[in-house]
Structure formats: C-alpha cells, structure tokens
Design a protein around this nucleic acid. Structure first.
Lengths: 215, 215, 215, 215
DNA sequence: GTGTAACCGAGACGGTACGTCGTGTCTTGAC
DNA sequence: GTCAAGACACGACGTACCGTCTCGGTTACAC
C-alpha cells in the first residue's frame, strides 16, 4: 500500500538519459522529516533539506513543486506506515484503537508541526488540498469506513440502505473522530491518553446507538 | 467584552514620551485582516500590512513580535465580535447554534487561512500557544461551558458532583464540537450547513444522553 | 578667539521664552568628539551623541542641521584651541613649527576620522564647504599668512607689490603645506615626525628662495 | 596594467558550480561610477547600484564587503585608465604634466566625492587602507618614481646613493605633489589650471635644486 | 505674580537603507 | 537526462538611523 517514492511528473515520452536516483528520493524524504523534527514547518527550508540529504536543490525541484508538496509526501509516508485497524472485537474498542493510533501519529513532532501548516496552505491552493486528501485524509477515512463495515458485520450498527445517507454519516463520523483528536492534540495541546480515548469512544458509540435506536 | 486595542507590552513605569497612536493600532489590525483575505497567510508580509495601514514597519514591530502574534490578535478581534450564545430553548438547538456560529467564523477567508497556520506555528512556540488560547480558544470554550450550564439548569444534563470530572467532560465536549467543525471546514473542505449541524448535534446529544443514562 | 559655542540660528526677533542651555551646547560638542574617537565618523549617529550628552535628539536638531554641521563645529573647536604660531626666529623653523602643529592636530583620532569625511561631503554641499572654510581652513591659512609677514619683516622673503600675486602665492604655499601634511597623515598614513618636518621645510624654503632669487 | 575585473575572493579550490558573471562585474562598477556622479558618496546606496546594474543586491555582496570596497575598486579603474607619464623633456614639464593629470582625475565628480570619503573611512579600517594603497595610491606614486628616474637619467637630479634616503625623498615629494593637488581641489575647492601647475612645479623644482645644490 | 513662549526629556512616528536569507531558476562540468 | 555545486534575480526579513512630531513639564523674561 506504500505510495511510489517519487511523486512528481516522471519522464513524459523520452526514455534516454540518466535515470533518477531512487536513493535521492529516500534521502530527501528522510531529510525532510528530520528537518521538520528539528526546525518545525516554519523554519524548514528547501536548501537545508537539500544539504541534509546531500543533494542539490535542483534535485528537489525536479521532483516537487515546493515546500508544501514535499512536506505532504514526507508526512504521508508516515500515515502509510503507521495506520491500520486491528480487529479488537467490538465497535467501542475499535474506535478507541483508531483514536489512539491517530493520536500517536499526531504526537510525532514532524506530523504535529507539518499537518496543520499544509492544511492552512491548502485553503488557497486546490491542488495542494487534493494532494493532502489523497495522500493523507483518505487513508484515515478508510479506517473509519472499515470500522463501520466490521461493526455492521457484527450487528453493532444497522445497515444503511440509502448509499448517500451512508456516505453522509461516514463523513460526519470521520470529521468527529479526526477533528476531536486533532483539536485535542494541536489546539488544546493536551495528550490523548487511554482515558480520554475511552471517554470519547463511549460518547461516540452512545450517539451512534441513540441514532440507530431512534431511527 | 472587546479586547484592548493595543496588545503588546506597554510602557512600564515611565510616563514621558509621545504616546502610541491608537489610530495606528486599529489601522494595522484592519490592514492585517484585509491582507489575509486578499493574500492568505502564506503571502501576507509585514511590509505589505504596514503599507496598507499607512504606517512604518517599525510601528508594527514596536507592538507585535512578528507575523504570528499580529495575526492572532487580528483574528481574535473577530472571535470577540461574533461569538455569543443566544438561548434557543433546548440543548440540541443550542449546540446547533454554536456549531453554525463557529462555522460561520471559520468560513471567513481571513479566519480560514490564518487559524490553522498559527496553530501550526504554536506547536513550537509556547508563548504563541498561550496567546492563541487566551485570545481565541478560551472564548470558544466559554460558550460551551455556558451551554452546559443552561442545559443543567433546564434539567437536560445532570449536575456533575466531581469538579475534576466536570472539567474533563467539558474539555472533551469542547474538543469534539470545535474539532468536528474545524475538520469539516478546513480539512474535508466541505460546508457546515444546517443539515450537517443538525446531524452532528443529534449525534452529540445522543451521546451525552447515553452517558447520563448509563451513569 | 574662541567661536561662539552655539552655532545655529538663534532666536530671530522674539526675546521671550526659556533660553537655550549653554550646558547642553558644551555637552553635545564634547559628546561628539568622544563619539568620533570611539566610533569614527562612519559609525557616529545623532542618537548616540544625544544619549552621550544626556540630551534629547530634538535639542541637537534645534542647533545643528545634521551630522556634518555638528562635526564641523566639534572639530573646529580643536583647531581654535590648538593652533598658534610661536615665533621661532626664522622662516625655516616657523614652517617646521606650523607643520608639526598641523600634524599633531591631524593625528588626533577625532580629527583624523572627521576632517576628510566632511570635506568629502562638502563636494556636494556648498553651505557645508563655506562652514568648513570659515571654521577650519581659514584658521589654518591665517597661520601661513602670519608666517609670511614675519618672514618679510625679517627680510627672509621679499615684499610682493602686486596684491593679487601675493594672494596667489599665499594660496599656493598654503595648499602645499596643508596638503602635504594631510596627505602624509591620512593617505600615506605615516607619521609626520621632526625629521619629515625638517625635510619638508627645507624643500619649501629652498623653493621659495629660488623663486625670490629668480624673480 | 588593467586590474582584474573581479576583485573579491574567488573560489578557493573547487571548480564546480556556475561561474561568476564577468558581465555583472562590469555592470556593477559602471553603475557605481554613474551613481557617484549623480548622487555623490553620501547618497549612494548598495540597493541603488544593484538596480542600476540590473543585478541583485546579493550579487554585490558576493563580491564586495560593502560600499567602501566597492567604491575603491570603481574609482581605481579610473586611475588605471587615465594615469600615465608622457615624457615632456624636462623635470619641470613632467611635474606640470603629472599635476594636471592628477587634477583632471580629481575634478571628475565621481573621484571628487569618493576619494576623500574612502580615505576618511580608512582611518578606522586597515584592510580598507591597504586596498586604497594598492589600488590607487601606489599607481600614483609609480608616476612620481618614474619621473625621478627620468630626471636622474637626464642629469637634472643627482643619483642618491643611500636607498633608504632615496625612498624617504620620494615619499616626501609624492606627499607634496599629491597633497597639494588634493588640497587645492577638494579643500580650497579651486581649480588646478595651467598657471597654478606652473607655479607649483617651479616651486618644487626650485626646492629640489636647492636641496641638490646644498648637499 | 502671572502669563506665555521657547525650551527640555522622552519616545513614538513615517521613511529609507541596511545586510541576510530563502525561493526557484540557471549554468557549469562530470557522469 | 540526471547530478552536485553554486551563482543568479527577486523579494521579504527584522534592525538601525534619520529627522519630525507629540507629549508633559520647566524655566526665565515681560507684563
């Protein structure tokens, strides 16, 4: 499921010439994460990343259009590696698990400083927003969707006949889960520990049950 | 409830010298909001703000340490002016109201582009985080606390005897509400309309009721 | 012979009001010389002079139009105090004396750094040039004229009947003496010691004698 | 005899990277002279020079440490181009020639405003003094030395057996010639015309002859 | 004695230039 | 065609001085 290491437009038609160094790709993304940890989004510079990676600036710009795109790819790799949904047997436990997993990712210094920054930039750059969505957000949402399927298979949640309504509900739940974790971590700047996760999961499952019962 | 127009450290003990121009304060904050709308956080520059305000750059730096601090104060004024909680009669309606109000604020272009950017910066700057908290976040949280008090007065929510537990719950609810609205607006980039607000409020009230009943 | 301590336009017609502090005048000129010694012309600032003098910047600008005028007056005071021509008995010794006296003044750090700087500025500012001429140059030239008179009285130099020719000759001799000392001190950056002064005086007296004899 | 166009420290050992633009060198020095003529030393700014040269400020600072160094090199080029000593047949005429040539250079507006300014700065900056000496002063002094050699070859001046004494004498003559011309031009602010040059040359040759005869 | 007008300190003000840094492009020669 | 190196045009940074302008307060002379 890991994305291609080199994201930018590859050779179009031509086939000749020296091929791109895949070593450089890895070194650049690693250097980017390292720089994010040490400097944070605001102080990270392309020149510094290039120097850390032992690479010329030209090599960066050949692959990524700018700092935003580079950072999105660099943190996306982390979401790739660290997000999965082990089956914990019931909806409550699955939500707790996904919440703790999101939180663990957001607590990492590179993610913490980068994620909201690129989201902020994306409010004025649709291409960037799409890149974030496909590289990061959709991966998170997939977990939520998977969790719902499992809960429906277990009979904990009703099957929704209307596909549009089902999508709306899934979006709502996703925004609630991801939003709560992000807000807790970055805005309130307090830890998402097991206790908080338990309380949050209970609240959400309670709400879902009420909605199901009321319907 | 409007915050003092001049945010930075004022003269300590001395009384001499030409006093700071309050006109400049207003012009600068106004110019900052205008520049946020036109240029967005990323392209906003101190020099441009100064020029718009008809003010020298030094006048900005005399009052604010940098772009982050300036922008926090500029958007904080909006939260000051536009957040209140009209009593709509029941908890569900109050939540819907507060959600729509948060969302209206976040949809404004100046808020949209600025808020997550300063939050991102605040992950590496504790002074900035405190400034955001006191200037923006606490104002939001006050609404949530007020809403709970009203619901308790109406008997919709039980009084919590343990003050620590009450604070934890309030924090949880606040992160859920604010987080969901922020995530919907900025990350998912989809509108918070009446329908979404209704669905979200229903989910949350259901969860709260379940928690109250289960206890 | 000491010039008025306060050089700038005094009250025109009015007579009332608080009189200017003569203490401030002295403090400012002293501070200027001190700053010239410590910082040199290039790094000297009006604000720094004001601070050293324990005076507001306004007080400086009430008296002097700018850095150039202030510095000219500050160093002019030194020329006032330290230039005189003791009668050494013969033209050769008088020239040696005046050379050593000029040199001693130019070796002072405040004079060294300031004099050529204001001369350079004066190439584009006629008012400044006039100020330099009357405050500094004319005082030097007076010594040369006095020396010639004495030499003529002693019979070492012939009386020149044509006043225009006399003025031309005096100007030439003045430029030769002052120029040689200035160039030696500031451009060649080597000391004007007794030996150099003797050699120079001998050269000049030889030239004058040849001119007198040839005529 | 023309100096290298690029004055600042060149790359040490490395050979890679884009080479510095020699076109930029020329454009910058030309723009500097132009700015000196139009604005004078005091109003000349690095930014303005860069703009005139169609070059970024960083390109200036890559080559020169500051305004002083840049201006020295810019005017040094003029001394390079315009100083030579045509053989006029006798010492008197040679001195007249060199005086008029020095004067013509000093009358140029760029030289007039710049030369004393950098000399003034050099009183506090030894590196700058050395730069001035090697780029400007030594070129002038070479003419004086050449003139003496010719005069000695012609038998107008005696050969001096003691090399130290010869050097002292040459320095003295150089300071007298250059100093007199500079003082006449910049301090007295009067023209060095043919008549003045004749009078000065006569005075100096008379002095030299007297010294030679007296010895 | 009481105006009152010019002075004084402090320090904020609109400007201009500074010298540095980051961006994204380009130009080398090597591979 | 890619690579490392590094120069390039551009533009923002945050600072330092400039010379001016308020402030509140203080003299000293004229009434």
């Amino acid at each position: 499921m890991s994305s291609a290491p080199s994201p930018a437009p590859r050779r179009a038609g031509g086939r000749t010439g020296r091929p791109r160094s895949t070593e450089a790709d890895r070194a650049i993304l690693g250097a980017t994460r390292e720089a994010l940890v040490e400097l944070g989004w605001g102080k990270l510079t392309m020149g510094d990343v290039a120097a850390r990676a032992g690479v010329a600036k030209t090599t960066l710009y050949r692959r990524w259009a700018g700092k935003n795109e580079l950072v999105v790819d660099a943190v996306a790799a982390l979401f790739d590696e660290h997000l999965e949904l082990p089956d914990r047997g019931c909806l409550l436990a699955d939500i707790e698990g996904v919440v703790l997993q999101f939180a663990a990712l957001l607590e990492r210094p590179e993610t913490k400083t980068a994620l909201m920054a690129v989201v902020a930039e994306s409010t004025r750059d649709n291409a960037l927003r799409e890149r974030i969505r496909s590289a990061i957000v959709d991966r998170q949402k997939a977990l939520v969707l998977l969790g719902r399927e499992r809960a429906q298979a277990r009979g904990e949640l009703p099957l929704e006949p209307d596909p549009a309504g089902a999508a709306r509900t899934a979006d709502l739940i996703f925004d609630v889960i991801a939003g709560a974790v992000v807000h807790r971590t970055l805005v309130s700047a307090e830890p998402v520990d097991a206790e908080w996760a338990r309380g949050f999961a209970a609240l959400l499952v309670g709400g879902l049950a009420a909605a199901a019962g009321g319907a």
